[in-house]
Simulated scan of single mutants.
Amino acid sequence: MAAGGFCRLPNGRVVVALNLPRPAADGTGCVRVLVHAQNRARALTRLRNLGLRAVYLRGNAAPPTPDEITAVLHHPDGLIWRTEPDSGVLAPEPVTELWRPIRSLLRRPTAQA
C-alpha cells in the first residue's frame, strides 16, 4: 500500500516512517508520517488508534533519514508529518516544509457559513 521503513535506535526503541495518501476530502498528495515507539507494532497501533486503520509496514524500502529521526525524537508527542514532494520530479528540491503534529493532519475542516 505505502512505502515505509523503520530504524532501531541504540536504546531498543524504533522510529517508523510511512508514506501515506493524504486523508483529505480531495485525496490528493501524499504525506510522510514519523512515529517514535517502543517497537514497530506499537508504532502502527498508535496510527490505527488515530483513525488510520489500513496502515501496514511491509519491508524497509524507505527508512527514516537521520534528520527525520532527530525531528521525531525532539517532538513531545513523537508523532509528526509533512507533505511528501512529488516523486515524478527528476531533480527533487530540498524539502523546506516544517514537521507538524499529527493533530493538524487529522483535524476535520470546519464548515464555513
Rank of each mutant, 00 (worst) to 15 (best):
A2N: 00
A2Q: 02
A2V: 00
A3R: 06
G4F: 10
G5V: 05
F6S: 11
F6D: 06
F6W: 14
R8F: 06
R8S: 01
R8K: 11
P10L: 02
N11M: 09
R13L: 00
V15I: 07
V15W: 03
V15M: 04
V16T: 02
L18M: 11
L18F: 07
N19F: 08
R22S: 12
R22C: 09
G27P: 00
T28A: 13
C30A: 08
C30E: 07
V31Y: 06
R32I: 04
R32P: 05
V35Y: 10
V35W: 12
A37Y: 00
A37P: 11
Q38W: 09
Q38A: 02
Q38R: 14
R40T: 10
A41S: 09
R42D: 13
R42A: 05
L44P: 14
L47N: 01
L47C: 09
R48C: 01
N49L: 06
N49Y: 06
L50W: 00
L50F: 04
L50E: 07
G51M: 07
L52D: 02
R53C: 11
V55R: 05
V55N: 06
Y56W: 00
L57M: 02
R58N: 04
R58H: 03
R58Q: 03
P63D: 11
T65Y: 07
D67W: 14
D67V: 09
D67T: 09
I69C: 04
I69N: 03
T70E: 10
T70L: 01
A71D: 11
A71G: 09
A71N: 10
V72I: 08
V72N: 02
V72K: 01
L73Y: 07
H74F: 12
L79V: 03
L79P: 07
I80D: 01
W81R: 09
T83I: 11
V89C: 06
L90G: 05
L90P: 11
L90Q: 08
L90E: 11
L90W: 08
L90R: 10
A91T: 12
A91D: 04
A91V: 11
P92S: 01
P92C: 03
P92A: 04
P92F: 05
P92T: 03
E93L: 15
E93K: 14
P94A: 08
P94S: 08
E97I: 15
W99D: 10
P101E: 02
I102W: 06
I102T: 06
L105G: 14
L105R: 14
L105Q: 13
P109S: 13
T110N: 09
T110E: 12
A111N: 05
A111P: 12
Q112E: 14
Q112V: 15
A113M: 07
